[in-house]
């Protein structure tokens, strides 16, 4: 359905925007390494079915490979700043202070409590869904502290938020048309969309309105 296609495209666009911004400006100002590392972990634990005989579609396969590869690539790209621009890297590390072990532990507990079947793949799948729902928190925390985000364009956040928002409509659509409902994905998805709303609100308040006052 269209909600899902545009949701996925919006997710693709967000990654493209982030990569383009970092590569073209050679700046990582305002980007949370922890959030990007968590996203890489999310895809690594969710798409393990790539290595089983479970086949959904070519679309599904290609998207999974892309999300896995791009999320790992972003982490590598950010790590390169460690030697390429140590001052910028150090500044990021100093600001990126959210304690992610709470998120990892919480997601693991949620994965163990709520899953479709008690198998390693299913528990890791559930873990990845819960982790994705909170992975933006280090970024949110960093932004609310500094109020600066040159590399994080409004487009990146908008595209990510739109992706989650469209997925909710996708689930409503599938519930109505296929009587299909994935309770874990829906509950975690609503949590995640709420996180993004907050992120967008802070971004608007701190970055857009904050910078507007400094314009020449």
């Amino acid at each position: 359905n269209l909600f899902r296609i545009f949701g996925d495209l919006s997710h693709l666009a967000s990654i493209g925007i982030l990569l383009h911004t970092v590569r073209s400006t050679q700046s990582i100002d305002g980007i949370s390494f922890k959030t990007q590392a968590l996203y890489a972990l999310v895809f690594m634990t969710r798409y393990l079915d790539l290595f089983t005989w479970h086949w959904v579609s070519l679309y599904n396969f290609l998207m999974k490979v892309f999300f896995l590869a791009s999320s790992v690539y972003i982490v590598v790209l950010l790590q390169q700043f460690r030697t390429k621009n140590p001052i910028a890297y150090k500044e990021m590390v100093l600001q990126d202070t959210f304690k992610i072990h709470f998120l990892l532990l919480g997601s693991l507990v949620a994965g163990l409590c709520f899953h479709h079947r008690f198998t390693l793949l299913e528990i890791l799948w559930s873990f990845s869904v819960w982790l994705e729902s909170v992975a933006i928190l280090p970024q949110l925390f960093m932004l609310s502290k500094s109020g600066r985000a040159q590399s994080l364009t409004v487009h990146y956040i908008f595209a990510l938020g739109l992706y989650r928002f469209l997925y909710i409509f996708n689930w409503i659509w599938r519930y109505v048309s296929e009587a299909r409902v994935d309770k874990i994905a829906v509950v975690a998805g609503i949590v995640q969309t709420a996180m993004y709303s907050d992120f967008f609100y802070i971004y608007y308040k701190k970055v857009i309105r904050g910078n507007a006052g400094n314009l020449p």
Partner: peptide, 10 residues
């Protein structure tokens, strides 16, 4: 009847 699905989403 509502069914719990396979993971066919991303």
């Amino acid at each position: 009847y509502v069914h719990e699905p396979e993971h066919d989403e991303l």
